[in-house]
Amino acid sequence: MDFTTFVKPTNGGSGDADAGIQELQFCKHVKYIENHGKQEDDYEYCMTEFLRMSGIYWGVTALDIMGQLDRLERKHIIEFVKRCQCSTTGGFAPCEGHDPHMLYTLSAVQILCTYDALNEIDCEAVVRFIVGLQQPDGSFFGDKWGEVDTRFSFCAVATLTLLKRMEQTIDIDKAVQFIMSCCNQTDGGFGSKPGAESHAGLIYCCVGFLSLTHRLHLLDVDKLGWWLCERQLGSGGLNGRPEKLPDVCYSWWVLSSLTIMGRLHWISSEKLQQFILSCQDAETGGFSDRTGNMPDIFHTLFGIGGLSLLGHSGLKAINPTLCMPQYIVDRLAIKPQILSRP
């Protein structure tokens, strides 16, 4: 398939004021993702098998956003996902031989939604897995070993939303109470547990959680929005906490949170776009965390996703809450809450 038709110049070819801006290395990124994992004996690939399910979700989603989903073997991927569902608990493992976990359960369900293949698995077993991990205080364990984290609250409601089983399964009010108990008075942000320092990645999880449960009114948008827009640094990139380095993945966490809160106009989109494009690897394709570093599949999704949220041409729209193509979210008739501008 000839996909060069998807490649469009970033600024309509006029190139006047933005002459120095890099263009999106569309073909190279497609190749990078396509080749990722073709060499099974690759060291990096082998060492990251403990998160394989998420790795596939990152690749599938990035390719779909680029309109190139058919470059991967749908059938093989679905078969792999099916093999990872635990017959006892109903949760998903990152790959065969590993244990099921909330993180990989969301990734598995996201992959199946993208492929419109939820009917291939036992969805009721997934619901049971998630319901079983909710605790009396409303929080969620990641698996039976008891780690509590707001990331798992997000995974739980996102998975149930995609399965359309949020109602009458978990205790939503309790789950909301737990999330709000992790909100910090100082900056309006959230950490991984009550009392934990605010962190952009966990803010995304909590803002996304409130978007899925339609409780965004509980946020102090002015306070949190200010802290988030202060993450943008001179390079245009965003960091995850004050006085830290910028990073493509934090750029996504902050950007999506600001979008959900209707405050995208509080940062410079133009500068952020420049930063993300500067993190492309022009030789191998893929995005790295920062300019000049090694690319990986994780930052590749968040680079592509960030550009999509910023309206880069040639990319499909992405949903800021679920980090999935908008057309899939529409197909499922899911409407995460989004606030309007003031």
Binding site: G225, C229, Q232, R263, W266, I267, K271, P342
Partner: peptide, 14 residues
């Protein structure tokens, strides 16, 4: 602090 121009405009409005 031009990056956050939009924020200062909204704060002024508040």
């Amino acid at each position: 602090d031009a990056l956050r121009k939009g924020y200062y405009k909204d704060l002024a409005a508040c």
